[in-house]
Simulated scan of single mutants.
Amino acid sequence: MKRRLLQFAEDVRSGRYLDLYVTTAVSMFFAAWLLIGADLDDDIRWSILLAAIGIIMLRSIASTRPQLQARVLLDRSAYEERPIGRVFESAREVSIFAPIGSNLLTVERCESLKNGPLSRRGGVVRVILLAPLKSDDKRAMQLDGLLERSIQSAHTALAETYDRLRRMSEWDMEGKLLVKMISFNPGFSLVAIDPTASEGFINVEFHGYRSDSLSSRMHVRLDSNDQKWFRYWLRQFEAMWSDASDG
């Protein structure tokens, strides 16, 4: 019973199944009224009955409809189908956490950010990177060890990313570029695209251990339909942003 009540509270907070809950509550109210001897007009009884049947049919259709999100668990090959640069160009708000950022924030994708949110009044790009590393830093050695055959050193690649972002900050832009740094690496990367818009989504990529290549890493794509985990990862980024210091 307690579990059902907690699920009900979570559904109400998330705005899920409100039509079903309201109709059920109204039906139970009138059922209780009838039990104590009240007499209801036939029109009211039929309205309640038809509303309940209609909601049951809608729920049945929704449960058998093919899911629009054909894939939630992806790897980097998904970027070939929907290039992230093209996504950046159509966005107004982009939030990024990437420990190194060199593979995401390439010259071409920085140009996409320039032509996208940074070209729009009210557009904003927020980036969190690891704080600068030295070659003997344990965090750098950890990052270098994530791949079986690393082709770049973490401390050098991170320095190049900071330099690229510094140059971007000197551009004449309508939008805002905000950069922060954090000392702790939580083991994932995150990109949020227009998270407050109806079409917004979040990609979370897990770094794994001694992967064959960067392209083999798993990532999860979430949108507002995945309400619980969408909000969870959005809060994760906001917590990191709050704790991070200016880059």
Results as ranks from 00 to 15, higher is better:
residue 200 G to Q: 07
residue 56 I to G: 10
residue 131 A to E: 15
residue 196 T to R: 02
residue 20 L to K: 02
residue 156 T to R: 08
residue 74 L to S: 05
residue 50 L to G: 02
residue 35 L to D: 02
residue 124 V to Y: 03
residue 96 I to F: 06
residue 59 R to N: 08
residue 146 L to Y: 09
residue 185 N to G: 11
residue 111 E to G: 11
residue 43 D to E: 07
residue 111 E to W: 09
residue 183 S to Q: 06
residue 42 D to A: 14
residue 225 N to H: 06
residue 48 I to A: 01
residue 205 E to P: 09
residue 134 K to A: 12
residue 98 A to N: 07
residue 242 S to M: 04
residue 228 K to S: 14
residue 99 P to W: 07
residue 227 Q to L: 06
residue 22 V to I: 15
residue 177 L to M: 14
residue 27 S to G: 03
residue 79 Y to E: 09
residue 234 L to M: 10
residue 164 R to N: 12
residue 238 E to T: 05
residue 227 Q to T: 12
residue 185 N to D: 15
residue 234 L to Q: 07
residue 89 E to C: 08
residue 14 S to W: 10
residue 159 A to E: 11
residue 85 G to V: 02
residue 168 M to V: 15
residue 58 L to C: 07
residue 237 F to A: 12
residue 25 A to D: 00
residue 84 I to A: 01
residue 121 R to L: 13
residue 179 V to I: 13
residue 76 R to E: 05
residue 235 R to K: 12
residue 87 V to K: 05
residue 29 F to C: 09
residue 167 R to Y: 10
residue 228 K to E: 04
residue 201 F to D: 00
residue 161 T to W: 11
residue 111 E to L: 13
residue 86 R to E: 11
residue 191 V to S: 03
residue 81 E to L: 11
residue 87 V to A: 12
residue 3 R to L: 15
residue 66 P to V: 00
residue 139 R to P: 00
residue 165 L to C: 05
residue 93 E to N: 05
residue 17 Y to S: 10
residue 31 A to W: 03
residue 122 G to S: 04
residue 83 P to L: 07
residue 150 S to D: 03
residue 111 E to Q: 11
residue 110 C to P: 01
residue 112 S to A: 15
residue 186 P to S: 05
residue 247 G to P: 13
residue 229 W to G: 01
residue 124 V to P: 02
residue 53 I to V: 10
residue 244 A to P: 10
residue 241 W to D: 04
residue 83 P to G: 02
residue 192 A to M: 05
residue 218 M to L: 11
residue 161 T to M: 08
residue 67 Q to G: 06
residue 130 L to V: 04
